[in-house]
Amino acid sequence: MAQLNLKQSDFEPIEYSEVEAEKIARESTSFWKDAWRRFKKNKLALFGVAVIILLGIMSFLGGPISGYNYYSNDLINSNQPPSGEHWFGTDQLGRDIFARTWYGAKISLFIGLAAAFLDLIIGVIWGAAAGFFGGKVDEYMMRIADILYGLPYLLVVILLMVVMPQGLWTMILAMVITGWINMARIVRGQVMQLRTEEYVMAAQSLGVGKGKLLFRHLIPNSMGPILVTLTLTIPNAIFTEAFLSYLGLGVPAPFASWGTMSDAALPYLQYQPYQLFFPSFFIVLTMLAFNVIGDGMRDALDPKERN
């Protein structure tokens, strides 16, 4: 047994003052600070963020660095394997794949971000309105969403792309027409759940108006699931873009996206595999990065996993 060394002075009362008692030892932390602290611990998610930032920068710098543009043909130098001259090689028409890859990054990332952002706006407004007003309004609004949700997403997008003229914005539009429903359902669920919380009741009894209640309390508190859904929508949109390109419904030439580049390279897989490798690699890398960011955010923002 260890011997305790106790002195007389240890038993004397410590000085006590009101000020001392009210002092907060640790800096107070908000929900977002706390979430960020947990997100930072997730190495994989940080890697994802770094990849996306790097891809974003390269999508602007990549073209100028290579010294080539994405559309000029050079038929004498077609199908060159990667070399010091053409870092990623050249394609069937002698276009520099390095330059095309970064131009494609711009297009693919733009489609992903634009589709996700439009989904966010429509989904949040629709879902929040349905969840907030409840009753008949909710029933009608969600019935419309259910009919659209019952159809397979890709099938609807394909049918719309057949009907509409090919182009960047029509593709985004086709994705958004059914893409917002997922967001709307999640926001509605959150809002309905939060509406019964005490703090909402407290706000209501203090006389807070409907608009303020929605935008000040309900939507900000649903931000966690909204952000996670948003992050996971982006890889889905990038996937859809590439998928449509494989069906010949992608962005029209001479635009390059990762999807159209992969599609064009597929028939030459046996002899020029590098033509398929580069765009495919970046599709996978981007989707992977957004997926791990989304997973990391879900873990960081989930109050149940707080530690």
């Binding site: 590439a242 897989l269 996978v284």
Partner: peptide
């Protein structure tokens, strides 16, 4: 995570290249 991030058409090309070619 890889399975979710690798689209099926890229997986198809990869399988064709490795196992068939």
């Amino acid at each position: 995570v890889l399975g979710i991030s690798v689209p099926n058409f890229i997986m198809a090309a990869l399988l064709q290249y490795v196992f068939a070619m």
